[in-house]
């Protein structure tokens, strides 16, 4: 067995999984609070990547320092993704909060379709080259064939985001309000939690992590188009369901499992069916263990 190849696949899967995790968090948090599959979440990630590309290009032409460009592009991506996440909730989901779940889901699909075509028409249907925001460090050169400095940056960022998020949910007031709302929305409202605010914050936080994921992966892959959100969104959703939707550690675990499975599958077996594989995974989990690895199985209330 070729251990170096194995290590490469292992680390590749880890990077892949971390990106899925950054997106999956948004799905899982929104689902935990309002029980809606936010179909447009993948598009938020795509918009984050596009904003970063545009801002970085403008600043690069202005001749700004490389590090400043990277930071500003990331900040702009986060701000805009949050703004979009916030606006989407207000437009497409809030008026439907008491409507049947199917209605909200159809509205979400509509939003996703709209955002994709909005970017397609406003920007371009073609792939755009994405500037490499994270430089390849020289001292890392000897090990770069196993794991690049880009990938290390991705891992480091993911881990920090996870820690920040955990701290926020465990220890801040809004975090407590979020947990209360996820448990029982009506009860939380009765004890004085501002539900609208909690939902908005959830969308904003989820969008921020998706934007970070978007910028990192775009910088790693080197190109983006209006459609990247759809496949990434579906895969992240698979990861969230795999881990147990509604559960934050579950989303991370599910993402890593999916990342590794994909990495080893494409590495050892075949890359033709890479995307089929994610879907197949989804179908199998939903059929055999719909509550996921860490999810609690729910009993229907009658």
């Amino acid at each position: 067995m070729d251990w170096e190849y194995f290590l490469e696949l292992l680390l590749g899967g880890l990077t892949r999984g971390s990106i899925y995790a950054l997106i999956a968090l948004g799905y899982t948090m929104v689902y935990g609070i309002i029980e809606l599959i936010n179909f447009a979440h993948g598009e938020i990630y795509m918009i984050g990547a596009f904003t970063a590309l545009i801002v970085a290009s403008v600043l690069n032409y202005a001749g700004m320092n490389h590090v400043a460009v990277a930071i500003l592009a990331m900040v702009a991506a986060i701000i805009y993704s949050c703004a979009y996440g916030f606006a989407i909730e207000k437009i497409a989901y809030k008026p439907l909060r008491n409507a049947p779940r199917l209605s909200a889901l159809i509205s979400a699909i509509g939003m996703s379709l709209f955002l994709q075509n909005y970017v397609l028409l406003a920007q371009t249907p073609d792939f755009l080259p994405f500037p490499s925001l994270i430089p390849d460090f020289d001292f890392w050169e000897p090990y770069a064939h196993i794991i690049s400095s880009q990938e290390i940056a991705i891992l480091a960022t993911t881990v920090s985001v996870m820690i920040l998020l955990t701290v926020m949910i465990k220890f801040t007031i809004i975090g407590k309000a979020m947990r209360a709302t996820a448990q029982d929305r009506i009860m939380a409202a009765l004890v004085g939690v501002d539900i609208n605010r909690v939902i908005s914050v959830t969308f904003v936080v989820g969008s921020a992590t998706a934007a970070i994921g978007g910028v990192l992966i775009a910088s790693h892959v080197g190109q983006i188009n209006f459609y990247i959100g759809f496949i990434a969104g579906i895969k992240a959703f698979v990861a969230a369901v795999l881990g147990g939707i509604g559960s934050i550690p579950g989303a991370v675990l599910g993402s890593l499992v999916l990342g590794w499975t994909e990495s080893f599958f494409t590495g050892y077996i075949s890359s033709d069916y890479e995307d089929v594989f994610a879907f197949l995974f989804l179908v199998l989990i939903l059929i055999f263990r719909p509550s996921g690895i860490l999810g609690r199985s729910e009993t229907q209330k009658v």
């Binding site: 809606l36 599959i37 579906i234 959703f237 179908v283 939903l286 059929i287």
Partner: peptide, 24 residues
């Protein structure tokens, strides 16, 4: 296999099936 699933999961799984067939 999928009809026991709740509404929103059903939507995603059927989407998955549709894509699987296309990719195959």
């Amino acid at each position: 296999p999928v009809l026991r699933l709740r509404g929103d999961y059903l939507a995603i799984v059927t989407l998955g099936f549709g894509e699987i067939i296309r990719l195959v």
